[in-house]
Nucleic acid binder design. Structure first.
Lengths: 148, 148
DNA sequence: TATTGTTATACTCTATAACTATA
DNA sequence: TATAGTTATAGAGTATAACAATA
């Protein structure tokens, strides 16, 4: 039972549902945080990864974000349209593009990262560092399960 | 750095992104698990909550699932079309419906819950009970943050 | 043959506004 | 006026198949 009077006996046993609901909460707050930069969750992740990895290829980005290549195209399109990212031809492989963040992209990225850090500090204030560490490590161990 | 060679230095600091990627992994596996019952994540959650709370109203269900009322309508429609759930009029309030699981709904629910338990046991095998407890409690503390 | 990026498409999930019938 | 349920709609995110150019 909870304060709402609804019996969660069965649902409470399922970790996955807790995870999903928590992500909804976090993402709603994150969307508000990123709105001022006109970024969304995925465009922000992509921008950060490109800024941290100059020359990254789209297939690598897709793998890093656990997305399909086709979905990454749209994300990079959006960042390129706003002159935050450029696709450069790769001489050694003319099928591929090397992604790099422009000066503008780096500038927005830095501001957005600071805002997201503040958002996370606020949202996870109730968790001490040790619990936060267990949380992150537990979540990361699941990623690995998928990649195997 | 990771085995992929991609630098996650900035991204790794963000708990929210770990959560989102983990949910993707879990949900992909959960979808496969529920497919045999022709259920999806949301229809399964709703079915379980209705089965555990006979007479539940749609607004309560929406709150319990952290969804809008309008989205719950579609979910209940789907369950009703498959004769797993019925909407009964509430004499004391003719605006509302009391949701109850049919025998068929209870049967499928029981099978699906067992399947999801197996899916979770497999997916979270790497986490001992104490870590799993920290994980769930940490995630739950975020739900509360939203409801305040 | 296999891979990179691309297009097109479809489906799930989430959010909002506006409506109706009741309260 | 407020609430329960509804309809319609829009947008984000995810997944798949098929294609052209290149390896």
């Amino acid at each position: 039972m909870t304060s709402s009077g609804v019996n969660f006996a069965t649902m409470d046993r399922f970790v996955g549902y807790h995870m999903k609901r928590a992500v909804n909460v976090v993402q709603a707050d994150l969307d508000r945080t990123l709105k001022q930069f006109d970024l969304r969750l995925l465009t922000h992740s992509a921008l950060v990864l490109i800024a941290d990895n100059p020359g990254l290829r789209q297939t690598q980005l897709a793998a890093a974000m656990s997305l399909g290549r086709s979905n990454v195209v749209v994300i990079v399109d959006a960042l390129e349209a706003r002159h935050m990212v450029v696709r450069r031809p790769v001489p050694s492989d003319r099928r591929a593009y090397a992604l790099t963040a422009t000066m503008e992209g780096q500038r927005v990225c830095k501001l957005a990262v600071a805002a997201v850090q503040a958002h996370e500090a606020r949202l996870f204030a109730g968790l001490d560092m040790r619990k936060r560490d267990v949380l992150v490590k537990s979540l990361s161990s699941l990623h690995i399960s998928k990649e195997i």
